[in-house]
Design a protein around this nucleic acid. Structure first.
Lengths: 104, 104
DNA sequence: TTCGAATATTCCTTTACAAGAATATTCCTT
DNA sequence: AAGGAATATTCTTGTAAAGGAATATTCGAA
């Protein structure tokens, strides 16, 4: 359960969300991300750190540079979680009535 | 795009996440949620406010009480978003190689 | 019409975290 | 070996937001 919260927390920050949106096109270096998003390099590095710690991105060092790319697992897990709600929307034709009866 | 961020932000807070997990079983009053989660009533009300503002829950007042229940739309939208990543995982057999070639 | 229960709101304090600035690290090139 | 590029880290500061305590509101029941 903690993983989902970690994923959510990482994605909930606007700049990190944007980074993820950028990376979906393909792998990018820190500098490229900073340029695209008009952010300063240190902040990008810090956000990438959070994304990396949460498993959302993977880094591959090439010489001087670090190439970041998305990692599928956390996304898939989050989607799986959301999928478990699907039953609820269909299943219950609004259990509210039922609840009100039970309520005394 | 802002809606997704709003949804993510609302879900990323542990107590709110727990509230959502509770509500998937069925509608609940503020007091019931507070009891289950061993939280103080005001904090629960405040978290429910955030969830309500972000459209994740709906409230139905019955006399003294307020019954909160999940709202499907934000969940569906978030899942839709996650679904747009699916192409990426399948589509690209790791475009990293490609990237490295382009990189000079 | 007052009382108590359920809930919301306000104000204050505290904490988490993002940005800024400066510096450290790593690696290529010469 | 030295210098410069790309990136990471550290320290500080500012701010948003969560918790605590008290109070306001709303409603049913007596």
């Amino acid at each position: 359960m903690g993983e989902k919260l970690t994923t959510l927390h990482a994605l909930a920050e606007p700049n990190r969300f944007h980074i993820v949106e950028l990376l979906r096109v393909g792998p990018l270096t820190v500098g490229e991300i900073a340029d695209s998003l008009k952010l300063r390099q240190p902040q990008v590095s810090k956000h990438l750190r959070v994304l990396s710690d949460s498993g959302l991105v993977e880094v591959q060092p090439i010489a001087n540079r670090r190439i970041y790319k998305l990692q599928s697992q956390p996304f898939l897990e989050l989607e799986e979680w959301l999928d478990t709600f699907r039953n609820i929307w269909e299943d219950r034709f609004d259990r509210l009535d039922e609840y009100l009866k039970d309520m005394k």
